[in-house]
């Protein structure tokens, strides 16, 4: 039987041309997650230009107003507009998430490369990392913040330190398997310098898993910031973050659950989207991982 080409309608052709290459195709979940995350990020970045009230302005006659009317989400115990605070709060929360992800990936990569490449350093570095991992991340972060004072910078550092060992482990395991590859042996035989082997041959292998790990760290950092603030060890309440808005609302939770619900919802949606995007990135970037975990 002769092979006949299927007639392609114009609309089908158009859709086909628009769609991504097969290996980049994803289900509706990650796309919705990406849209939600984009909306949250943009709403946070542009918050100062569109919020109806100054998020810090207290109106003592309008404390704990119910949602609706002038105040879309009502007001907090100090008479500040909840809507303005929730969208503005995303700015610092996201900054902390991204900051913690970038810094921990950077230092984790550095330490992990050294641990994976130098046998001598490996044993010592990994013992230190094991010890750091045995301290619950939240407790370690709490202790660090309570010692260094609660600024955005110190909160980022306090969240970063417990995350670094996880990155180090990941990078080290990638380097350990990559250094046995023939191309690394060839590079060594050709007399490539050690920094060149590290950066040109070993580092590229770590990029895909690091992107994935970075998204997970970003999500968990936003979560830990919220917990730190909730416990009273977070960023000072002069700058709203999702965490400290909830912390201030907790005593009034029974009067107006929205004080915790709205920032909690934004925070959860944000973390959920980042996690879903991370899962998708993992599946796309590293098919081996998918096979192992599925």
């Amino acid at each position: 039987m002769a092979k006949t080409a299927q007639p392609v309608s114009a609309s089908q052709w158009f859709l086909g041309a628009l769609s991504l290459p097969r290996k980049w195709r994803v289900g509706p979940g990650p796309i919705i997650a990406a849209i939600v995350l984009t909306v949250i990020v943009l709403s946070a970045i542009f918050a100062p230009y569109y919020v109806p009230f100054d998020p810090m302005h207290m109106e003592s006659t309008k404390r704990l107003q119910p949602p609706g009317g002038e105040y879309i989400l009502g007001t907090d115990p100090f008479g500040r507009d909840m809507f303005s605070r929730v969208v503005t709060g995303g700015r610092i929360s996201l900054l902390i998430g991204i900051g913690a992800a970038v810094i921990s990936v950077f230092f984790g990569l550095l330490i992990g490369l050294v641990a994976g490449f130098f046998r001598m350093a490996d044993a010592i570095i990994m013992r230190i990392m094991d010890s750091l991992m045995s301290i619950p991340a939240i407790l370690l972060a709490i202790a660090l913040v309570s010692l260094s004072g609660a600024s955005v910078g110190s909160v980022i550092i306090a969240i970063t330190i417990p995350e670094i060992p996880r990155v180090v482990r990941l990078v080290r395991s990638v380097v350990l398997s990559a250094r046995e590859e023939p191309y690394v042996e060839a590079a060594t035989a050709l007399g490539s310098s050690m920094p060149k082997i590290l950066t040109k041959h070993l580092m590229p292998n770590t990029m895909a898993p690091l992107i994935v790990q970075g998204t997970y760290i970003c999500a968990s950092a936003i979560l830990i910031e919220a917990i730190l603030s909730f416990l009273g060890a977070g960023v000072s309440t002069e700058t709203p973050t999702w965490g400290n808005i909830m912390a201030e609302g907790r005593d009034y939770f029974q009067i107006n659950p929205g004080l915790i619900f709205w920032p909690g919802l934004m925070l959860s949606l944000c973390i959920l989207s980042i996690n879903l995007i991370g899962d998708t990135a993992r599946d796309l970037l590293d098919p081996r991982l998918k096979k192992r975990e599925a």
Partner: peptide
């Protein structure tokens, strides 16, 4: 499972409290 990782533990606590206790 994904949801469990995404909601802060105290928000879950307050939701449970609002539904089952209050």
């Amino acid at each position: 499972s994904v949801l469990g990782f995404s909601i802060p533990v105290f928000v879950i606590g307050y939701i449970f409290m609002a539904i089952f206790a209050l």
